[in-house]
Amino acid sequence: MSGQVKQHPGLNLHREDAETRDQTEEVLFGFWVFLMSDLVLFSLLFATYGTMLHSMAGGPGPKQLFDIRNAGIETVALLLSTFSFGQASLAMKYDDAPGRVQTWLLVTLGLGLVFLGYEIYDFVDMIGKGGPPSRSGYLSSFFALVGTHGLHVTCGCVWIIVMIAQVRMFGLDTLVKTRLLRLGLFWHFLDVMWVGIFSVVYLQGLVG
């Protein structure tokens, strides 16, 4: 039994039989295709943001609105959450320990909520400083881009809750495992998008 050949990107399941592996492969491939479609959506939001950089319409810009400390905290929260999801994946792959998986999922969820909390706080702060989305084309595109990412994270959090429930109800059977694999891809993918956002939006904005 050669469960060791990596068949699909992302963390492989451990010692799966051939049929499970084929199924997992198909499902994960489909999910990657979805992620790539989502990538197009994000890239066009980025492009829109790029075309709107000069559309301040006399309103406030990045220097007046952004708070580098918030962006930093959000970044750390998200990076840690990606790491903690990795721990959940390890526990799933090697330890077959539903309890540990749930714990790490909870940690991830917590960090995700911290991220969302700071993001909302940041948005409220910006609106308070006179920068609501309706103020200018630039701000519309800012809120659309960062907000879309936030919505994705929200969906990810709901999904984590669902998966905690499923691990509890069904244990770590194949279906639950492949779903966790997909959730992992989703969560890590959102982190990649966030790297784009803090670089292109926050840091670039504070420099430019």
Binding site: T48, M52, S55, A57, P133, S136, Y138, S140, A144
Partner: peptide, 18 residues
């Protein structure tokens, strides 16, 4: 839709829309 429902300015005539 955001332009129409949430008063944003992606494609409007003024306020920086394009």
């Amino acid at each position: 839709a955001l332009d129409r429902y949430a008063d944003m300015h992606f494609f409007t005539n003024g306020m920086g829309g394009n």
